[in-house]
């Protein structure tokens, strides 16, 4: 029986990354996954491939190669112009049945989770959600580590009797690989197994989320200065903005601050907000509830400013300041401004 299983599993080879795109632009997490995928492929001594679907995606195929894909499976057709579950599901499943990869990775984004769930069900295989850690053993079993219970616990999940092994991976967790335009790879063009007539869903419009000065995308920022309930009111957030301006960063918020109407929802960090991984995260008047921590604890450096020395935020902080934020933050902003002036003076 064991030999039979081993034979079944060994029919699957290669690591695949699904390249998510909207209007021709790739989601950054897809490139991050090519970086991780490369590592897994090397450990398995197999090929790293990218799956690119859409309309007019030649450029994306080239980019995927530059980020490390050795082969790109591409489906290019008007029916794939906008992401639609049924069209993409049929496309990916057709590729999997033809080429049988051992591992498929997708971003744990709205789109990635929409697609991964249907593909895994259609293929009757296992899917691990929202991973933050991936490694592979010598039998080719993927150790998929993910937070569950809102980040209170971590679980390592295995899918050792089925292939392909599928995982969605949280954005900003895996480091971005370098882009190298000199890299070469093969683009395999596959025909699209669906027609417009078969589609159950039509995308009528895509609205970019703008308006009310909230276009800032905190998930891409290097410096995030977040405020919580300790900020006391909306006006005090201008103090954080001032600090953010000196640092070249953006202002984020805890859910309490968002619920109070002090900041828009798209600035919320945490389980029901965004996951961020800046170079420096400064938490001001935020207690550090687990739902907040899961969204920011992978930041390179966490600075916590809180007057309560027992606040759980200090447990994830690289640097903690126990004090009144209304004194510490202006002092910090002043220091940085002085430093900046001194430096630009030197340069001038």
């Amino acid at each position: 029986e064991e030999a039979e299983l081993a034979r079944k599993l060994s029919a699957y080879r290669g690591v695949w990354v699904f390249i998510e795109q909207t209007e021709g632009e790739a989601a950054k997490v897809s490139w991050e996954l090519l970086g991780k995928g490369k590592e897994l492929a090397e450990a398995r001594n197999c090929e790293l491939a990218a799956v690119v679907m859409g309309e007019g995606v030649e450029e994306l195929c080239r980019q995927a190669i530059g980020y490390g894909a050795q082969r790109v499976f591409s489906m290019d057709a008007p029916v794939l112009r906008h992401y639609r579950t049924d069209a993409y599901q049929r496309g990916v499943c057709a590729l999997v049945e033809k080429y049988r990869p051992e591992v498929i990775l997708m971003g744990a984004t709205g789109l990635g989770r929409d697609l991964a769930g249907v593909v895994a069900t259609e293929l009757s295989t296992g899917l691990t959600a929202d991973c933050t850690g991936l490694s592979i053993d010598d039998k080719g079993n993927l150790m998929q580590t993910r937070p569950a219970f809102g980040g209170n616990i971590m679980a390592t999940i295995i899918c050792d009797k089925f292939r392909p092994q599928m995982a969605t991976v949280r954005p900003h967790v895996m480091p971005m690989p370098p882009f190298d335009a000199a890299l070469t790879g093969e683009v395999v063009r596959e025909s699209v197994p669906v027609t417009e007539e078969e589609m159950k869903v039509k995308v009528l419009k895509i609205l970019m989320d703008g308006g009310s000065g909230s276009q800032v995308d905190i998930s891409g920022a290097d410096f995030i200065i977040s405020g919580g309930r300790g900020m006391m009111n909306k006006e005090n957030f201008s103090m954080l903005q001032e600090l953010a301006d000196v640092l070249g960063g953006v202002v984020g918020a805890s859910r309490s601050a968002v619920d109070a109407g002090w900041m828009p929802q798209d600035r919320q960090v945490g389980q029901t907000g965004k996951t961020v991984r800046p170079k420096v995260y400064i938490a001001c008047g935020i207690s550090g509830a687990i739902q907040h921590l899961v969204g920011m604890q992978d930041s390179d450096v966490v600075i916590a400013i809180n007057r309560d020395p027992e606040a759980p935020i200090f447990q994830v902080a690289s640097y903690g300041i126990v004090g009144d934020l209304f004194q510490v933050i202006p002092a910090l902003t002043r220091k940085l401004k002085t430093l900046k002036e001194a430096r630009s003076g030197k340069r001038a």
């Binding site: 150790m143 971590m154 390592t156 899918c159 690289s318």
Partner: peptide, 14 residues
């Protein structure tokens, strides 16, 4: 169920 939980642990805090 193709997937199973092989290990459960508390997240590390530095």
């Amino acid at each position: 169920s193709p997937t199973w939980v092989s290990r459960i642990f508390s997240p590390e805090r530095s």
